[in-house]
Design a protein around this nucleic acid. Structure first.
Lengths: 206, 206
DNA sequence: CGTGATCTTGACCAGATGGTCAAAAGATAA
DNA sequence: TTATCTTTTGACCATCTGGTCAAGATCACG
């Protein structure tokens, strides 16, 4: 039952090159817009050679999504219920925005998938993702109930953090078209910090 | 120079049916993912018949985008510099969220286009859209300078409104997967109203 | 009704695309 | 070096897709 024979040196190198190239192409063109030829060329391989490492176009896409989902949700997982509420949430926002800047292709890969109805990861959303958000929402709701942050709908708070941070990656061309030469990330961190401080700082009178 | 002969009754009906069907298909599959056959079937026409009304797949897509851009930007255009600042912005947020609920296909059509680098409307973004946002940002900056709203980066404020409102249309499956049976729009309006009130209400001390 | 314009369609085409295969080329270890 | 295993490739295939065309069906109007 040796289902995982140790990969050879060449296998490791080529598999990595394929996934890297596929991330480029899938994130820029979407699944149907991407072609195996294009991915193969970007990876420096011939098409049949690429298909020697992955059985199909869909298998590459699946491998990418699966490998990246954990990374993508790590910031939310790291939200620590024993920490200081406002700082925990602000740190989460900061990490999420950081990821949009450092990993825009990954963000767009997920965006493409979800905008088109998540045909390939819909199942994971309503199980793993939902479970994670349910758990963290409870933490946030408790913080609010204890008056440690201002009262807020925890699910929509999390949606807003996803939305605002990923906007800078997913709609990058639009943001840059409007801003002109200015770098969006010059002011985005401050803007989001201010926004969530004002939203969540508990006030005195009810 | 009669470039626009009056369309016949059948022409009007079929052109409308094609655009309606194309909106369905393009918004769900993206440009490359959509097929002319699928659009034709959804419009109740044969493929050659569809191509009798529009010269190409791209022409349909262009017609859609052009026809919808004005509608899409109308809420921002309606932002009135002579109105009460906070209420003007809150009304804009409300209208934008309303549009996400009423016109999710349109939202996803634009999302697909922009996520993939806006190959077809990039030009409009850096001219028309930029001009509109520049103008409205000046209004918001003035409001802030006058102390009528709390100080805020106007461009990022507008981005945030786009981002948060369209998130409910573009990432609908994800939002619903996490929320379960609850309707996102049950609480989204209140959440956004609260968020922008707390962000923009001017406070007493500096 | 008749006639010209409009509308519709089946058959077809060329190119793109995902994927296969047998055989060649290259690495590896005795 | 040789024998075996891994990697690479050119040629090929079936299907899908955007688009064409000529001929037939339908409509509008005198």
């Amino acid at each position: 039952m040796d289902t995982k024979p140790t990969p050879t040196r060449i296998q490791r190198k080529n598999r990595a090159a394929i996934l890297e190239a596929a991330l480029d192409v899938f994130s820029a063109q979407g699944f149907r817009g991407a072609t195996v030829d294009e991915i193969a060329a970007a990876a420096g391989l011939s098409k049949p050679n690429l298909l020697y490492y992955f059985p199909s176009k869909e298998a590459i896409h699946d491998a990418l999504l699966e490998g990246l989902l954990d990374i993508w949700l790590a910031p939310l997982r790291a939200l620590d219920e024993t920490g200081e509420p406002l700082e925990e949430i602000l740190a989460y926002v900061r990490r999420k925005l950081e990821m949009s800047r450092e990993m825009p292709r990954e963000s767009r890969l997920f965006a493409n998938e979800i905008v088109q109805g998540a045909p390939r990861i819909g199942a994971v959303l309503s199980t793993d993702l939902k479970a994670l958000v349910d758990a963290k929402s409870k933490v946030i709701a408790r913080w609010a109930a204890e008056g440690r942050i201002a009262p807020v709908h925890p699910y929509h708070l999390i949606f807003s953090i996803w939305s605002l941070s990923q906007h800078y990656a997913d709609f990058d061309v639009q943001v840059r078209a409007v801003l002109g030469p200015e770098d969006p990330y010059d002011h985005a961190p401050d803007f989001l910090d201010t926004l969530y401080r004002r939203l969540l700082t508990p006030h005195i009178a009810p």
